[in-house]
Design a protein around this nucleic acid. Structure first.
Length: 503
RNA sequence: GGUCCAUUCGUCUAGUGGCUAGGACGUCAGGUUUUCAUCCUGGUAACAGGGGUUCGAUUCCCCUAUGGACUACCA
């Protein structure tokens, strides 16, 4: 096979959606699997929709994901420039070449005029298609006498260049994922290739750049499938070899219908973007929500692709090795926030207590607490397996840092009895006199005291937990009290007795 | 409306002309636990429908239904 060169070609019109990230990922995996090159090309031919900051956002997102760009606006390369607005001059000549060979023409119709025609034919139940069926009647260089349209051009009248779609021709092509597809050219319209503002449309720029950059495989979203016939025609008109195409299935909403959108994330409280989007209407990002890039990528890779084995946890290296484009599915995949969480949980479990302690220390700081790293490691060890995110650690351990400010009424009702104050009073003196406050020592002492007095273990321990934690949750009591320390424990028992005895 | 694409448990999916249709997430139950969670064990649950082809179709073909994308001087 010729050498593999693939590109990810987003438009800088806002934050990069996870569907876009997945497209980038599949391109990247395919390139690396085949020893090829991954190119990032910015498609900013629509000046009106350009959004400040989007380009940086795209690059930062890929970087966070661990998707390494080989050629691009920041990396450089031998096929630049990699931003279409910087390639502006090269497109017109290709449009002109098409006109020269008779496969394209100048059109002078105004957008308003076309709009009117469209609504009119809609009213009569017909579809308006700007093609062979009607172009002779419109305002273009095919319908007008040459002297007339040349004069318009000379006068500087606004024009676009349209592709001249042939009449009644079966256009046949193959897609790696979808197989053979046939479309009749009569259902296609004479697409605008070159706009009146002097910029090419996606269709022209895309084909020209893919050819000039020697792209071997185009891997993009399914929304492009309907324009593939046009693209194939363009390659034919230019006499170029077309790259191979693979159209990826779409990412769908977690509930209901339709493709995933920004709104879904807002509505259901999960992110649909890799990073926080800080401009204008802000949007949540996976990174800021506490996801690690590895599980995020892992999750995305498995949305629409699988290795054919039962392996689900993959490193990027493993993904590259296992990836194959013909194992990509055909139907849309629904994004599942629950499974995304599970992936993060899996990765977090593999982190060392030290790594997590370091991360958690930063988090604690924002809550106004601090502690030394060794103590935090001990703490992490107690709750690690029950959390999916570093921020969850706080929810599991807040009572280690501050005394409860209220007691769960349900738990009080269930576990606070007439004997409880007396028992906890005894426990308090026991702990005051205990020299070794390690978990093991505390356990021996407390369990001995309970048994010696014939108390009910569950009753005593739950009441004890209630005054220390404020509710019936958390790790083993002996680990908790040893970490918190005698003085604070005594204080909490005292407070608990005085507050709860009034019930 | 037109064109194109798709359809296996609730979700992501494996799979093949003959299988008890497999796994994961979720969910449910049991176990472990002085609590909660984790964890372990087990269960639940699917080939959209109808016609063909065939000795036999989830698998191949056709139709229908449903879903989706596109239908801009946006990408």
């Amino acid at each position: 096979m010729e050498r593999v060169r693939v590109r990810f070609a987003p438009s800088p019109t806002g934050p990069l959606h996870i569907g876009g990230v997945r497209t980038a990922l599949y391109n990247y995996l395919f390139a690396k699997k085949n020893g090829g090159t991954f190119i990032l090309r910015i498609e900013d031919t629509d000046q009106a929709r350009f959004v400040e900051g989007a380009e940086e956002y795209i690059m930062e997102s890929l970087e966070w994901c661990g998707i390494i760009v080989d050629e691009g606006i920041r990396e450089g390369g031998n096929y630049g420039p990699y931003r279409q607005s910087d390639r502006k001059e090269i497109y017109r000549q290709y449009a002109d070449k098409l006109i020269e060979i008779g496969d394209a023409y100048f059109a002078f119709d105004t957008p308003e005029n076309l709009e009117t025609l469209r609504t009119e034919s809609e009213k009569s139940g017909k579809t308006f298609i700007y093609n062979a069926s009607i172009r002779e009647k419109l305002n273009n260089s095919l319908a007008l006498p040459e002297t007339e349209w040349r004069e318009k051009l000379d006068r500087g009248e606004h024009f676009v260049i349209r592709y001249k779609m042939p009449l009644n021709e079966e256009i046949r092509f193959d897609d790696i994922i979808r197989g053979h597809i046939v479309v009749n050219s009569d259902t296609l319209d004479d697409k605008v290739l070159f706009k009146s503002d002097g910029m090419p449309t996606y269709h022209l720029a895309n084909i020209v750049d893919d050819h000039l950059m020697e792209i071997s495989h185009v891997i993009r979203g399914e929304e492009w499938l309907p324009s593939l016939p046009l693209h194939m025609m363009l390659y034919r008109s230019f006499g170029w070899n077309a790259p191979l195409f693979a159209h990826l299935p779409l990412l769908l909403k977690p509930d209901g219908k339709g493709k995933l959108s920004k709104r879904d994330g807002d509505k259901m409280g999960f992110p649909v973007f890799p990073l926080f989007w800080p401009f204008g209407e802000t949007a949540k990002g996976f990174r800021e929500e506490g996801y690690y890039p590895e599980p995020f990528i892992n999750m995305l890779a498995l949305l629409g692709w699988n290795s054919g084995t039962e392996q689900e946890i993959f490193t990027m290296e493993e993904l590259i090795n296992a990836f194959s484009i013909d194992r990509v599915g055909k139907s849309g995949a629904r994004f599942d926030p629950e499974k995304a969480k599970w992936f993060n949980h899996q990765y977090l479990q593999k982190k060392s207590n030290n790594e997590l302690a370091l991360e958690f220390r930063e988090f604690l700081r924002s809550h106004g607490f601090h502690d030394d790293i060794n103590r935090l490691e001990t703490l992490i060890a107690m709750v690690k397996e029950r959390v999916s995110f570093v921020k969850d650690i706080w929810e599991q351990t807040d009572f280690f840092f501050k005394a409860p400010d209220n007691y769960d009424p349900e738990a009080v009702k269930k576990r606070w009895t007439e004997e409880t104050p007396k028992q906890l009073g005894e426990l308090k003196s026991l702990l005051s006199g205990l020299t070794d406050f390690s978990p093991a020592s505390a356990e021996t002492a407390i369990m001995g005291w309970i048994k010696g007095n014939g108390y009910n273990t569950g009753a005593v321990m739950n009441a004890f937990r209630l005054v220390i934690v404020g509710s019936l949750r958390g790790p083993h009591m002996f680990d908790i009290i040893s970490w918190i320390g005698r003085e604070e424990i005594i204080k909490r028992i005292t407070n608990g007795i005085s507050t709860l005895s009034n019930y």
